[in-house]
Amino acid sequence: MTSSELAREPFSRRMKTRMRRMLGPWGVFFEGFVKNPVMVGSVIPSSRFTIEKMLGPVKWDECQLFVEYGPGVGTFCRPILDRLRRDGMLIVIDTNRLYIDYLNATISDSRFVAIHGSAADVEDIVRAHGHTHADYVLSGLPFSTLPEGVGPAIADATHRVIRPGGAFLVYQFSARARDYMARNFKRIDEDFVALNVPPCKLYWGWKDTPGDA
């Protein structure tokens, strides 16, 4: 953009452009939070402690498809891609176009697919990309503030799309998500990360394999 074009831009847009350049992904994340705090849930991305603990139980050698709801600016995306098999795929789904555009512009990995849409449609999205199921699904969506009926719909669709032996990984600031998970997942492991802003609850809902009691 030339100096003359910049001068013709509205002041608010110029300030937004400058803030994005100064803050990088944090600026984009904050802008997305301001536009839609109900769907983002937190003003600060997850800490590396949360990422390491959340992804710890994943059996990466068995993972062909990993799905993430609400990827934001890719806080989990890059660590997932670092661990994912060369023939694997990471599909991320977000209702915020700002985040999807940012991810498509900054992540060039051929295993990465960013979808502007709803997590409730995960089954259709997975099938559209050549898979019958997902091995793991990760969610940071704020279940406690989602519109009525959306949380249960996402939890139900997620259970259906995960293969037996796979898991639904959830990080939250309230216990509401566990209530939705418990509708379908008999085994739910729990943990807590204090070194996160705010401190974070972690849940792993494991889908039974055939023959499990």
Rank of each mutant, 00 (worst) to 15 (best):
I115V: 15
G27E: 01
E62V: 08
N36E: 00
R111S: 10
R85A: 12
R97W: 06
D82R: 13
I107S: 05
R20I: 15
V126S: 03
E68R: 04
V67W: 10
S108R: 12
V28E: 01
Y69D: 06
R86K: 13
M22N: 08
M54L: 15
L81M: 03
N104D: 12
I93F: 01
D121A: 14
D121L: 00
M89A: 15
V113Y: 14
E123R: 03
Y102L: 02
A120K: 02
L90K: 01
A105T: 11
E9P: 00
P71Q: 03
I100F: 05
G32H: 04
M22Y: 14
V43N: 06
Y69V: 06
E31I: 12
G41V: 00
F66T: 05
I44D: 08
R127S: 15
T95A: 02
L84R: 01
G74D: 00
E68I: 00
V92K: 02
L65T: 08
G74M: 10
N104L: 11
D94T: 06
H116S: 04
R83V: 00
G70C: 07
S12W: 07
D61S: 15
F112V: 10
Q64V: 10
R85M: 14
D87N: 12
D101W: 03
P10I: 12
R48G: 13
E123V: 06
N96W: 01
E52T: 14
M22F: 15
I51F: 00
T50H: 12
G24E: 00
M89D: 01
T17D: 10
S42Y: 09
V113N: 09
T50F: 07
I107L: 11
F112Y: 13
M15H: 12
I93H: 04
G41P: 02
V113G: 03
D121T: 07
G72P: 02
E31H: 10
R85S: 12
A120W: 04
V122R: 01
D61R: 15
R127G: 12
S46Q: 08
S46C: 13
D82S: 13
M15P: 00
V67T: 02
T106R: 10
V40G: 08
P25H: 07
S42F: 08
R111D: 09
W60A: 04
